[in-house]
């Protein structure tokens, strides 16, 4: 362990990075399938079947990243885990109920007697909406240092709406990739609508974050740190422009370019996440607890790390296999 210097330094950092990566992967992956759920009310019954078919083989593995992220928080930073989750008690409960509703709706909507299908479709939508709203709310609360005042509540309500828009946007981009004809055209229109919400949300969060904390303000607006950060907004702006152009031209003959908006959307999520991670480091509970103070014993972290080094590449490998097996346009899901 001494090989890399003081394990009490690099282990917490490594675990914070791992946790960051799993949150990011979660937000992208479950983001698109939650987004598909949020778009449900705008689709016809036949389209709903296609939409579910496009995410059916993936959603479970996507949600597992949330379990990993929360698991890493729990195992690597137990003190922070308690502090964060107890102060987010209610939104967490709402999110869990949302996840329950939508998760079981995948199965029930096609296994329950046909007259019940509409109810389960509704549960799928409501669950997806509850999940993304409460995640956005938690994001807002977290950005505001987990304080509970009227102002932080209002801010959190706003981030709740914007995260939901962001999810439905990436969901629409996924559908452009996975569907054809009418539904694909609809998805392009949804994405065009969503992109403005996304830009507004990104702008708002970027403006509010430095105002809440002088530490973050200094990190953003002092020299030379500003130079490190400057590429983030510029790149984001560029991507939004490119994306808009690509959406204008879709759908193209032979389905060219159907993948582009989804890739751009991922890039935007990565950039936004990078900005947040940069601002909050080294805190895990904003302004209260750093990753170094909250970390578990190095011996325990090391045991987990050894496993991670072997297992993560395998997870990546078989995830890639699943996406390869189910690549191409969504087709009817069947067991035989």
């Amino acid at each position: 362990m001494e090989l890399f210097g003081d394990p009490a330094q690099w282990l917490p950092f490594t675990f914070a990075a791992l946790m960051g990566v799993s949150i990011l992967v979660y937000v992208v992956l479950d983001g698109f399938d939650l987004g598909v759920g949020i778009l449900f009310p705008f689709a016809s019954d036949a389209e709903k079947d296609v939409m579910v078919a496009s995410i059916g083989p993936f959603w479970d593995a996507n949600e597992t990243w949330l379990v990993l992220a929360i698991g890493l928080l729990l195992v690597a930073f137990p003190a922070a885990h308690g502090a964060i989750l107890t102060s987010l008690y209610l939104p967490v409960a709402i999110m869990l109920i949302g996840l329950i509703l939508r998760g079981v709706a995948f199965e029930f909507r096609v296994k329950a007697p046909t007259p019940h299908k509409a109810t389960w479709n509704w549960a799928f939508f409501a669950g997806s909406l509850m999940t993304s709203l409460s995640q956005g709310f938690m994001l807002g609360k977290y950005l505001m240092g987990l304080e509970s005042t009227l102002g932080t509540w209002i801010f959190a309500m706003i981030t709740a709406v914007f995260l939901t828009v962001a999810y439905s946007f990436i969901g629409a981009c996924w559908l452009i990739l996975k569907t054809e004809e009418g539904l694909q055209r609809k998805s392009v229109a949804w994405a065009k609508g969503g992109i403005w919400g996304l830009v507004l949300g990104l702008g708002l969060v970027s403006m509010a974050t430095p105002l809440v904390s002088t530490r973050i303000f200094d990190k953003w607006f002092s020299f030379p740190e500003m130079l490190y950060l400057a590429p983030l907004p510029m790149l984001s702006g560029l991507i939004v422009l490119l994306m808009w152009r690509s959406l204008q031209s879709l759908p193209k003959p032979d389905d060219r370019g159907a993948r582009t908006p989804f890739l751009y959307a991922i890039a935007l999520f990565v950039l936004a996440f990078g900005g947040l991670a940069y601002s909050f480091y080294p805190y895990v509970v904003p302004e209260k607890l750093t990753i170094y103070e909250a970390a578990s014993a190095p011996e325990s972290l090391f045991i987990i790390l050894v496993g991670t080094v072997f297992v993560l590449p395998m997870i990546a490998g078989y995830t890639a296999l699943a996406y390869t097996v189910f690549k191409g346009k969504a087709v009817e899901l069947r067991y035989d």
């Binding site: 009418g182 539904l183 087709v331």
Partner: peptide, 9 residues
């Protein structure tokens, strides 16, 4: 077996 494509299905 049918391919799923938008309205057609």
């Amino acid at each position: 077996r049918t391919a799923l494509s938008g309205q057609a299905y």
